[in-house]
């Protein structure tokens, strides 16, 4: 059986917000180490991988590996019934077809209980090759959100170029072009710092629609990492204390 107690429903809500537009159904793979989810969008252009560590829960027990097939729209609805600071327990029996969610109010005696239907989802975990990336950019997640939102007003795609100068995001639209250069900052310790590690110059083009979607994870984590090599998928990684959310996005080629 699974019993996982989270300090706050808000974490799960933010996580759902960050994936529900990419993926409709997904298996939450539970094992003694925690909960994992890996799913591709319908067009097989983007992949999202989520990991929640067992140690990040107030209490965590999973006797044997079990997949919980979840419709994310339904889970979003059930989670809307929780206050952000409710203590939230997820429970499922072995071979169960329901997920039980209990919300305990922090400062009152309210206890709410919901049962949500689970589904059988055929999904095979993809093999993601270990990649040595040629460039790693670490920046405030709010800045990344802002850049991709701004440029998505102009065009469909963005070219991301990493050089000694900094990281440049450029988009060409029918009516207007735009480019944003973010230079490396001196103080690495600053939470507003932009850090660039680079083995070689990279330049890749991506669909902004997906990046805008990924950037919703900013609510989970103040920093984001962009990992890039020429001609391989971009990795956008948000590491929050309790786990991570990583997105992979296939590049566009040619003009």
């Amino acid at each position: 059986m699974l019993e996982a107690k989270l300090a706050e429903a808000g974490t799960l809500k933010k996580l759902l917000d960050a994936i529900k537009e990419l993926v409709t159904d997904a298996n939450f793979e539970c094992n003694e180490e925690g909960i994992n989810l890996q799913a591709m969008d319908n067009s097989h252009v983007a992949l999202v991988a989520v990991h929640l560590e067992a140690a990040g829960f107030k209490r965590y027990r999973c006797d044997r590996p079990m997949p919980l097939g979840v419709n994310l729209t339904s889970l979003t609805k059930v989670l809307k019934c929780a206050k952000d600071d409710d203590i939230t327990t997820l429970k499922a029996a072995d071979e169960a077809d329901v997920l039980n969610l209990v919300y305990e109010a922090k400062n009152s005696d309210r206890i709410a209980e919901y049962d949500m239907k689970l589904m059988d989802i055929d999904s095979d975990t993809l093999g993601i090759p270990d990649t040595e990336y040629d460039a790693r950019v670490t920046m405030p997640s709010a800045e990344f959100t802002r850049v991709v939102r701004d440029l998505s007003q102009l065009g469909e795609s963005v070219r991301i170029e990493v050089s000694k100068e900094g990281v440049r995001f450029a988009s060409e639209g029918e009516a207007a072009n735009g480019s944003v250069l973010m230079k490396q900052t001196d103080d690495d310790e600053d939470t507003q710092a932009i850090t660039i590690e680079m083995n070689q110059h990279v330049s890749l083009t991506f669909s902004l629609k997906y990046l805008v979607n990924f950037s919703k994870s900013a609510s989970l984590c103040p920093r984001v990492q962009l990992m890039m090599s020429n001609d391989v998928p971009l990795l956008v990684a948000y590491d929050f204390g309790q786990g991570y959310i990583r997105y992979y996005l296939a590049p566009k080629i040619g003009d």
């Binding site: 252009v45 469909e156 998928p233």
Partner: peptide
Amino acid sequence: MGRQQTLAKFFDMP
């Protein structure tokens, strides 16, 4: 602007 590739080319699809 450009042709969108899929992840199949890069990842081991089952």
